[in-house]
Amino acid sequence: MKFAIAVFSPAHAPSSRRALRFAEAVLAGGHEIARLFFYQDGVHSASANVVTPQDELDVAAQWRTFIDSHQLDAVVCIAAALRRGVLDEAEASRYQRPAANLPKPWELSGLGQLHEAAQSADRLICFGGD
């Protein structure tokens, strides 16, 4: 089965960890992930500037490793990200901000990518939200 997974909460929220564990289980079960889409405060789950105390679980880093190692399509909504200070090099330079915190494998793009993923997948699973 093909899953589209949307994450609406930051790395420190339980639902971001749950989303990651679900995504791992999807692949471990032999299923496919059409796309991961990070929206609302979920864009913070993609920030490279999250620093977690050493004795705590670093969910942001685990997301990065997971996406990298499985070469997944991981899209961060550009409008939600700009509003929350999650910028790649191009946006940091466009808006003359001093730092970028969204390196590869993340991709900044629009909400059309959420719809496209939802249409192509058998299931859309959302984590977080208000």
Binding site: Y39, Q40, A79, A80, L111, G112, L114, H115, D130
Partner: peptide, 13 residues
């Protein structure tokens, strides 16, 4: 921004 972001999903779709 939650209400606006929910609306944006609808408008994009």
């Amino acid at each position: 921004p939650s209400a606006r972001e929910a609306l944006d999903i609808a408008l994009a779709g």
